[in-house]
Nucleic acid binder design. Structure first.
Lengths: 105, 105
DNA sequence: AAACTATATATATATATTTTCATATACTAT
DNA sequence: ATAGTATATGAAAATATATATATATAGTTT
């Protein structure tokens, strides 16, 4: 196997990881919300109507896999999608499947 | 919760399921291959260079979750992506991340 | 019907994920 | 420094997933 093959296989694995980590209802909703604008944790669990610990744990998972970043702003911690490829992916997914649109309806 | 909300939440869950099931390197490669054209099982495992049982098991998972269909054609069984939304999704994903392109390089 | 090819399923084991609840840490305001 | 608010982490139990190997089924050809 050439080096190019090794690299492209690694990329494929990484993309699979991204899909997998977003393949959870709570995490998908977090990603959709953050694709719109960055939010602090409180806003997110307020929006999702879920216990704080649940949201924090999912945020940690998303952050560990590299699809989210966090920035402390005083007392709050804001989360955002920093990678433009992932942001595009979520945006396209949302458009193609009309997820946010349907949730709002 | 209104009926519309219930339905859109169900759809969101379904989309999360689709992402999750595709969030595995082997299954992602199967989907990419089948987005190009439908294939029988032998072609797939030949292409992926994996044991037959491994491929069959992943195909079953994909079929159970409704992202693939199969059709017997004589001795062979062909798999295909029947849902156009999912086909679009895979195609877009591939384009945006240049997966197939990189794998071919 | 026997031999062959193609595909599917079963089972066991290992590993990972989800969920819940309790607790800990980090800042802010007084 | 203390109280209050915001967020993160830990641990345990339940559940799901992955992987390997063996075996079974379905169709084809002779």
């Amino acid at each position: 196997m050439t080096m190019a093959e090794v690299n492209s296989k690694r990329e494929l694995n990484e993309i699979a990881e991204v899909l997998k980590v977003m393949g959870h209802p709570v995490r998908l909703r977090i990603m959709l919300k953050l694709a719109e604008r960055c939010c602090c944790v409180g806003e997110i669990w307020d929006h999702l109507q879920l216990p704080q610990a649940v949201v924090s744990q999912h945020l940690k998972i998303l952050k560990d896999r590299g699809v989210l970043e966090s920035r402390r702003e005083g007392a709050r911690v804001c989360y955002l999608i920093s990678d433009s490829m992932i942001l595009d992916l979520v945006t396209t997914l949302d458009k193609q499947c009309c997820i946010t649109e349907k949730l709002a309806a």
